[in-house]
Simulated assay, not measured.
Amino acid sequence: IHVEKLHLLNHAGQERITWRVLNYNEQSHTFNGMNELTRYFYDELNQLNDEQNVFICDRTVECAWGLFNMTTPAKKVLHLHNNHVSDAKDIMHSTLNNNYANALNNWAAWDAVISATPEQTKDVEARFGKDIPAFTIPVGYVDNATLKAAPVKFDQRQKDLVVQVARLAPEKQQNHSIEAFVEVHKQFPDAKLELWGYANGDIEKQLHAQVAAAHLEDVVLFKGYTTDVNAVYNRAQLGLLPSRAEGFSLMLLEAQAHGLPMVANDVKYGPSDIIQDHKSGILTTDGDVQQLTKTILELLKNQGQLAQYSAQAYENAKRYSEEAAFKQWQALLDYFKPAKVTA
């Protein structure tokens, strides 16, 4: 046994949790909570070499306090891999995303910040200033094996198959996809909408009820979780992502890498950076279900255009190759030389 978690009751009957590290360097240590244990771990890790280390924090709720309270010197980098505000329409004044609030309210404690898109980098600098360097690095890349794989011929894809690959969650707005498919089904009776992803809370019940009320049970299919999402991208003719907010969207990047044309809302952040509008997909307006419906119908009616979008999607994905992504990381590494980076 190396670590123990102790649940105790104080005199008021309230639970108190302590952590014990046993027989570490011939000593045992007790910590009042996970934050103190995490801070101790970072300090110990930081002393394993004689170099200036850099810690990159992409889960600030778990790691920010420990980094802020280290007793040994180190460089600290904030990594924003999602929208940093609650209301993307009011970047300068909106309340902060709960996951990043503590980190951003302690802006001066960081030595650099990473955002996933140029637009987010610009917005972060506008609100918090340019007193620390800001780097733009995508949160994903397309591996060389995928880029070198033979493209799926468009006529081998399942005709009129539309997919949405995302958590079943309010912000992903599968309800808009279902609403759009009411009209799509009228004009394309054989068209199918597959919803892939696990559910958050009771949203799946709500979506099932919406499908039942529209009598689309044989058309809108809930496919759940898959360990082979690439097969989904390779089989479909069109993908949807009518989200009201995104951080970068690995789904869009994965879909483009597999030649899947996408229809996605032009929201902060990611869709406009990944999708080449009217070349590898189409950007739509959040909340405009009529526009979403019209776009799906026009694309399904024009199979030739869809095939062109598919070919361009394969080309578009090359912008996010391993080499291209590492060049952006290299700028961060060069900034901290001769520091050693620990992520």
Rank of each mutant, 00 (worst) to 15 (best):
D155F: 10
D58A: 04
E125S: 09
N23E: 10
H176T: 01
A343F: 06
D90F: 12
A191W: 05
A339T: 05
L207I: 06
G140D: 04
H215F: 01
A199S: 14
A257G: 03
V21Q: 06
V61H: 12
E204S: 12
T95S: 13
V3D: 08
V152P: 07
A88E: 15
E4M: 05
N25V: 02
N99G: 15
W19K: 05
E4N: 09
P189K: 06
I275P: 10
N230S: 09
N69H: 14
Q291M: 12
H11C: 02
R20W: 02
Q328V: 08
D266P: 02
F188A: 12
A108T: 05
D50N: 11
Y198D: 13
I91A: 06
F31Q: 07
Q14N: 14
V229G: 03
A236C: 13
Q308Y: 09
P118C: 10
Q187N: 15
L45A: 14
G201Y: 01
V289K: 02
T18H: 07
L78F: 03
V165Y: 05
R235T: 09
F248T: 03
K122G: 00
P151H: 08
Y233C: 02
A331R: 07
W19C: 03
M34N: 04
K186D: 11
L306Q: 06
K75G: 03
A255T: 08
N302I: 09
Y40L: 02
D43P: 03
N105R: 10
L45V: 15
T284N: 08
E26V: 02
K130V: 15
A169D: 10
L22Y: 02
P261W: 09
E4W: 04
F188Q: 09
R244I: 12
N98R: 14
D87S: 10
G197W: 00
K89P: 00
A112Q: 08
N99D: 15
R167N: 06
A213D: 11
A255L: 13
S321T: 01
A149S: 14
I275A: 10
D50V: 05
N99A: 15
P189G: 01
V124G: 10
A313D: 07
V220M: 13
L306K: 08
Q330H: 13
G197E: 00
A257H: 02
T226I: 09
V182Y: 13
Q330W: 12
L241Y: 05
A214T: 02
L8A: 11
L193P: 10
G33Y: 14
N53L: 00
A231I: 02
K76Y: 09
A331D: 06
V211F: 04
Q308T: 14
